[in-house]
Design a protein around this nucleic acid. Structure first.
Lengths: 111, 111
DNA sequence: ATTCTGAGCTAGGCTAGCTAGGTATGAGCA
DNA sequence: TGCTCATACCTAGCTAGCCTAGCTCAGAAT
């Protein structure tokens, strides 16, 4: 099956995760998906099969760091938080996002 | 090398091409890249190695149709134009784009 | 003669998301 | 006691689609 309605754009997931961690502090994966979905007013849905690999990727790249902790509900969970490199990356990706969306918007308006 | 500054977002190329053909009528590939680059105020750069495969893909999916013709400069060129299905697809992709960018914008603002 | 520009093309690689499963624990309830 | 549900995490394997890095050919300019 090709692109479905709920697919996010390739490349935006990292941006979304970094930004959410920046705004919310340490979060575990499950909460991240819920949060992104809620804040985006249900416009975005992050699949767990996308999120966890992405988190591992980002951890290896040093953008986030993780440690085991407990949720409010008393379950053990892997808490992720931004590193300095993650903050830097966020700034870059944000800028890049602005550039790309501006470019596309221009084409959509007056191509 | 991972993401470079000039990479476009996966999924937007089709949208850009459909929209440009809608606005400009029949165009050949070479002109498409130039046009998108110009209209986007140099924010977007479509590589030929991305464009031609994309055009062939879209032709096979019936979104565009092609025929050999001549450019203003007297060179033979493959002219692409929108089909009815392409117009429909454009409307869909446009809507999807709006949804996604709205969602991301929300997260960037108040995650 | 050679280089530049316009025009088209392809093979192969790679990123990163998706599908579709799986595990484990605790809570609620029948 | 057994069941289901929600929470939380994870992986293998697939695929789309863009990119790199090349290539060809014609005509014009140097």
């Amino acid at each position: 099956m090709s692109k479905q309605k709920n697919d996010i754009l390739q490349g935006t997931l990292t941006l979304l995760v970094l930004r959410t961690l920046e705004a919310q502090g340490a979060l575990h994966g499950y909460a991240l998906t819920a949060h992104i979905q809620r804040v985006s007013a249900e416009l975005l849905r992050v699949e767990e099969g996308s999120l966890y690999p992405a988190l591992h990727r980002m951890e290896q790249e040093g953008l986030v760091e993780a440690q085991w902790g407990l949720t409010e509900k008393g379950r053990k969970a892997r808490m992720y938080s931004l590193t300095a490199a993650g903050k830097k990356q966020l700034a870059e990706e944000r800028q890049n996002w602005e550039r790309l969306t501006k470019g596309v918007a221009r084409v959509l308006r007056h191509a």
